[in-house]
Design a protein around this nucleic acid. Structure first.
Length: 296
DNA sequence: AATTCGTGGCA
DNA sequence: TTGCCAAGAAT
């Protein structure tokens, strides 16, 4: 049983899309002629990394590896190198694995099917929906943190969505909100609204196209009950991993000897633990004899 | 379900 | 200065 979209829903979609048409940022992956592969790469790079930092790296990847087969033919270590300082370098490894899976299982073409996309390494629910939508124009619930926040505010009257992953019910409601026509236009518009107007910290409700329909604003835009645990980084294994991998990434030589890694962190226990984790993740290869390199 | 996984800009 | 966090995924 399907539900016809409400009048309010139509109004919301129309207003957000019209706002987008006059206010969208000119991001390179939104321009014409961008392949589904380039869209996929952009989506993975944008996982937890700000737009401004992604743009130059995405441009260089697009030139260097214009098709999945090109990336698959190169070494995973080159992907990690070219990842630069985007953070979470396992994403680079998974992009390489995804490229290989696309070549081996899909004839070198990015699959259009949501489930096929979901089965690729590093592609979860959000990214599969985003690639299907923005790469192929099909209709899915594109539920990222921005969209969830917009919906939480406008429709639920709360400052933010739950921190847990979206439930099946939340996904179903979100899909109903996507119009049958121009689903990609709608989804990119809601994301953009959440990113630049309905922002997490300083929302610009005075320039919001749906302010008059926003349940949260109607209640005075009450802040969220700050319950988030502080995200510590300094001194963590994560920081040590970053420093270790940075040495391998930035070095012109392929092979790095142990002393060149040891200098990045004082505590030997934590250093060894972080290095072992990088090796276990496949980001670093132990060549033996105190020699290490990026995966080849 | 709660943790882990980088990085750097900004209020 | 430093807390905060930016288009999540995997386990």
């Amino acid at each position: 049983m399907t539900h016809s979209p409400s009048v309010m829903n139509d109004s919301f979609a129309r207003r957000v899309q019209e706002w987008y048409d006059g206010n969208a940022r000119d991001l390179p992956w939104r321009r014409g002629g961008v392949s589904p592969w380039a869209v996929l790469v952009s989506e993975v790079m944008l996982q937890q990394t700000p737009v401004a930092r992604v743009i130059p790296t995405w441009e260089s990847w697009r030139q260097r590896w214009p098709r999945p087969a090109a990336l698959a033919a190169d070494s995973p270590g080159e992907a990690v190198r070219a990842w630069g300082r985007l953070g979470y370098p396992r994403r680079a490894l998974r992009l390489h694995q995804a490229a290989t899976a696309i070549v081996d299982g899909h004839g070198g073409e990015v699959p259009a099917s949501y489930l096929d996309l979901l089965s690729l390494p590093g592609i979860g629910g959000y990214t599969a929906a985003a690639v299907a939508t923005f790469g192929f124009g099909t209709r899915h619930a594109v539920l990222d943190t921005n969209v969830r926040r917009v919906y939480a505010r406008v429709f639920d009257g709360v400052a933010d969505a739950r921190t847990a992953a979206p439930s099946r019910a939340e996904l179903a409601v979100a899909l109903e909100r996507v119009p049958l026509t121009e689903p990609a236009h709608y989804s990119v518009a809601v994301m953009e609204l959440g990113a630049v107007v309905c922002a997490a910290r300083a929302p610009r409700c005075d320039s919001c196209p749906v302010a008059s329909d926003c349940a949260w604003l109607a209640k005075g835009a009450p802040p969220a009950p700050s319950a988030r645990r502080p995200q510590v980084f300094a001194g963590t294994d994560r920081q040590v991993r970053g420093r270790l991998l940075s040495v391998l990434r930035e070095s012109p030589a392929d092979v790095i000897v142990k002393p060149d890694l040891d200098v990045v962190w004082e505590d030997p226990d934590q250093r060894e633990r972080a290095l072992a984790a990088l090796i276990a993740d496949g980001l670093v290869v132990d060549l033996g004899d105190n020699r290490y390199r990026l995966p080849s």
